[in-house]
Write a protein that binds this DNA or RNA. Structure first.
Lengths: 346, 346
DNA sequence: CATTAGCACTCGGCCCGAGTGAGTGCTAAT
DNA sequence: ATTAGCACTCACTCGGGCCGAGTGCTAATG
């Protein structure tokens, strides 16, 4: 990376060290490494190399006479260059497939995926929900509730239904509402909410003069109905309690901050957003992500898509010291399978 | 309680001891108590009384030479007979009122109430959602989605909207659907889902012979639509992270179990259900509730109602060692204010 | 007779010091 | 370039001693 490349040997040692640390959770020393099969070196030699790695900031010892532990930079190098991915055994694939299942409700699918990620990795599974704004509007319906209150039903994407209540400036008869709804459906069908709003504005401009009252009403009501108020992106998080079992997640206060961030959702969403346009699995290690709360945490994520169109991101959140070689293919596969399942619904 | 009543003095001492323990979190000894203003007794005398209380199972010492700590039974006696409720200061009332606010969306109200409970007590706030089945049906609408799939919209209680997708055995024209919906609306309006199902069955029996095809279809579809599948009771829980700050909540594993119970929802719902028909504030102390996961936890709950009709339960979950004198009036008041706010929506 | 002072005793918490073992860095030999 | 050897560091553990808070019991007291 930084000018001086690592020697073969140094790489091998780093790889072994990280693997060892991940599996044992203890700082690993020169003796331990030298005992390793592939490393046919004396502890002393190993120590020399380790000193180099230490200088490069890839590993460091928590105190004078403990072994070495990978730094964030060390983990990074490891996952980027040294990691040998463990192939998924067949059972896992079909188990994921089965668990995600074939519910007719897309939300069900997303929920199962999240739960599955959590169960299988024993960490927290997260699935970002598709942005609703992107969904194609198919139909608009109005239902009078009580005086001046109207229930708006938006059918999106053939399957998803959203409803909102709006307040109107005067009473409308069911027939009027029906008419307005038809008008809007016809005007906006097939577009997403963003586009629909654009269409409305355009329509308003173009026909400003010839506009009749009904159209004016329609546009007024639609502007309320299409407001993207409740439709911010969101995610499903499953198995956060799993994280409580990891001793190396720092103290309670730390964990608490993390859980609060989960509730806040903002930071996590931003993070997931970052990997929305990445192709394939992406990994954030510790504070590398820029979010302090994620200290001691790594996030392994992958976007999922339907028909080559990016829909959202899913992933796993766990301690930095996680079995990347196992988790990465799981996340990867889950993203693909979820995409497939969603596709079949379409 | 058990035959022998406590003497005045014993009660006073127990009261002081519990209050002391609640505020300090340390086992309290005879000296500490004897120093207390109201207790004009020497440590020795206090010790004698404490020994009695110990024999009665109201207090006990964690080890030979520590002070005494209230047992569950001791807490029970304390909250039932000895507790002097702290009056709410005016600020708190208006702050709760303000925070609950006057959203038009009842779900918003419930959510704010939960959050408010959590914020103000620094523990976990919980609000049980009204049972949907109990809500009065006001209107039924059908919207054709794609072939054989029909969106059912149930308007409940003037305000609440639920939608479900059902599958039909053949295609229906919009007009047909409209007709069926009208029929069902007329048949079931004002009843809750349970009653509605009953009405349907009755209708089916009575008119079995004279029944036309439309009515048969209607009944078939309604039986799908009114299924109470997704409508189990649920609750909103806010501020569980607050619980992580209490040292005396046992170890991490314990807390984890608790959080899992929160996710499971089943146990908590059962517990809340128990106080649905209690009038006023109800308190469950520790495992008293029958749920092991709630060890070291107390639940303070109160039902809330609209027009004298019980709607649901709200409350607070926190460590057994909580400031009951402060929490009880807060829960009480929040239940009342929430009821009021819901009432105004009606 | 209830209350209290006095006393012996218990036991957790804390500090201290010694011993242990894992690990390091350096140097000299191979 | 590698390795053996050596002196050194330092966290961890374990036992002992001390302290203080608290108890139960008994005998004295008003």
């Amino acid at each position: 990376m930084s000018g001086t490349e690592l020697t073969e040997r140094a790489q091998l040692l780093l790889k072994n060290l990280v693997e060892r640390y991940i599996s044992d959770g203890q700082p690993v020393g020169s003796r331990t490494l030298s005992r390793d099969e592939q490393v046919a070196l004396s502890p002393a030699t190993v120590r020399n190399v380790m000193a180099d790695l230490d200088d490069l900031g890839l590993i460091h010892s928590p105190h004078t006479s403990a072994g070495r532990v990978p730094t964030i930079k060390g983990y990074r190098l490891f996952v980027d260059n040294l990691l040998t991915i463990k192939p998924l055994n067949r059972g896992t694939v079909s188990s994921i497939q089965q668990q995600i299942g074939d519910s007719i409700d897309p939300n069900q699918l997303l929920a199962s995926a999240s739960r599955q990620l959590s169960d299988i990795t024993s960490m927290a599974g997260v699935v970002m929900l598709p942005k609703r704004e992107v969904a194609a509007l198919r139909q608009v319906e109005f239902l009078p509730l009580s005086s001046r209150r109207v229930l708006v039903i938006l059918v999106l994407n053939e399957r998803e239904v959203q409803n909102r209540i709006i307040h109107t400036s005067r009473d409308y008869s069911p027939a009027e509402l029906q008419q307005i709804a038809n008008y809007l459906t016809q005007l906006c069908a097939g577009q997403d909410l963003h586009q629909a709003r654009q269409s409305l504005l355009r329509e308003m401009d173009e026909t400003r003069n010839s506009m009749n009252q009904m159209m004016a009403d329609a546009i007024e009501m639609a502007s309320q109905a299409f407001a993207t108020e409740g439709s911010e992106t969101d995610y499903l998080l499953e198995g956060q309690t799993n994280l409580m079992s990891y001793a190396d997640m720092g103290d309670m206060e730390r964990l608490r901050k993390l859980f609060e961030a989960f509730n806040q959702k903002r930071d996590i969403l931003q993070l997931l957003d970052q990997s929305l346009h990445a192709d394939g699995v992406q990994i954030f290690i510790g504070e590398e992500s820029g979010y302090e709360v994620l200290g001691d945490c790594s996030v392994v994520s992958a976007p999922y898509k339907v028909d080559d169109e990016l829909i959202g991101v899913l992933g796993v959140i766990g301690p930095t010291r996680m079995a990347y070689d196992r988790v990465i293919p799981i996340v990867d596969m889950t993203a693909k399978l979820l995409g497939n399942s969603l596709n079949q619904l379409k």
